[in-house]
Simulated scan of single mutants.
Amino acid sequence: MSSLPEWIDERIDRNLDNTLTQAHVVETMLDADRPFFSIRQLQARIKPDVSTATVRNRLNELQAIDIVATETYPESITLYYINHPEAEWPLSPTGKRQLASDSPLDRLSTRGFLTMRDTAGIRTLALAGLQLTLLLLALGAVLTIAGLDIGSTTSDVVFWGTAFDLLAISLGILVIERLVRWLRQRVGSSDLIPGM
């Protein structure tokens, strides 16, 4: 289990006579991939097995010292979460920083693209290309069905052609990225395939 943050460590009761300690409840909540829990969800994660009443008692104690907070929903469902002082519910400070960070496309550099190092940015770029392909195909289909042309060109043909070109480019980028990733895993990093 992870060590407790200082703001929690200085508040919790170190009573080791309890079957379930406040520290164990908080550590279980912090180590989980989810931001909030019902009593039964938390009870299922805690080892050794303890009663629902014991889990509820520890959560009430933690709520009294402002480490845990609750949200109550219809049908008497109460969810418990760590009441991080630096972030609003239900985000932890780490979650808040991740949401505020740049998107993969914002971080994608020319070098990261050419060396296929920034896989998240490359995949995001390819997926954006696939979505734009769908838009161009839809526009081409609407213009073809309606029999409309924009300007002096046969615009439906232009949209169809551009969509298929973009589809080929996007799929090519995805295939190359996967191939480079596979080669890196298979043969390791080399001068031809710079490491990640």
Rank of each mutant, 00 (worst) to 15 (best):
N15D: 15
D13P: 06
T21V: 06
T52K: 04
Q22F: 02
S2L: 10
T54E: 07
A44M: 15
R14D: 10
I46E: 00
D31W: 09
A44V: 07
Q41A: 05
P48W: 09
E10P: 02
Q43K: 11
V55R: 02
V55L: 08
A53K: 10
D33C: 06
D31K: 13
I39P: 00
F37T: 00
E6T: 10
V50F: 00
A44C: 06
E6C: 02
W7F: 11
T52P: 01
P48F: 05
A53I: 09
D49T: 05
L4E: 04
N57S: 06
R11S: 07
P5Q: 03
R14V: 15
V55F: 12
R56M: 08
D9E: 15
Q22V: 03
T54L: 01
A23M: 11
I8W: 03
V25Y: 01
S51M: 04
V26K: 01
A53N: 14
V25H: 03
A53M: 13
I12K: 08
F36E: 10
D9H: 14
R11T: 07
I39Y: 00
A44K: 13
A23R: 12
L42S: 08
R40D: 15
V55Q: 01
D17A: 05
K47H: 10
V25S: 01
A53S: 13
R11M: 09
N18G: 04
R14P: 12
D49K: 11
D9G: 02
V50K: 00
T28I: 04
D49R: 10
S38R: 12
D31S: 15
L4Y: 03
L4Q: 07
R40E: 15
V50W: 00
L42N: 01
H24W: 06
A23H: 02
T19G: 02
D33K: 10
I8G: 00
R11N: 06
R45D: 06
L30V: 03
A32C: 13
S38P: 04
D17M: 10
T19L: 12
F36C: 04
I46Y: 01
T21L: 02
Q43C: 04
L4P: 02
P35E: 14
H24N: 08
P35G: 11
A32T: 08
R58V: 02
Q22K: 06
P48S: 06
L16Q: 14
R45H: 14
T54P: 00
L16W: 07
R11V: 06
P5L: 05
S3M: 10
R34S: 07
T28H: 05
I8C: 01
D9V: 07
L16I: 13
I8N: 00
V50D: 00
D13A: 11
L42M: 11
A23V: 06
R14L: 09
W7H: 03
A53T: 13
Q22Y: 05
A32H: 15
I46V: 15
R14M: 12
S2P: 08
L4T: 11
R14K: 12
P48N: 04
S38M: 12
T19V: 05
A23L: 04
R40P: 01
M29A: 11
A23C: 09
S51Q: 01
D31C: 10
D9A: 15
K47D: 09
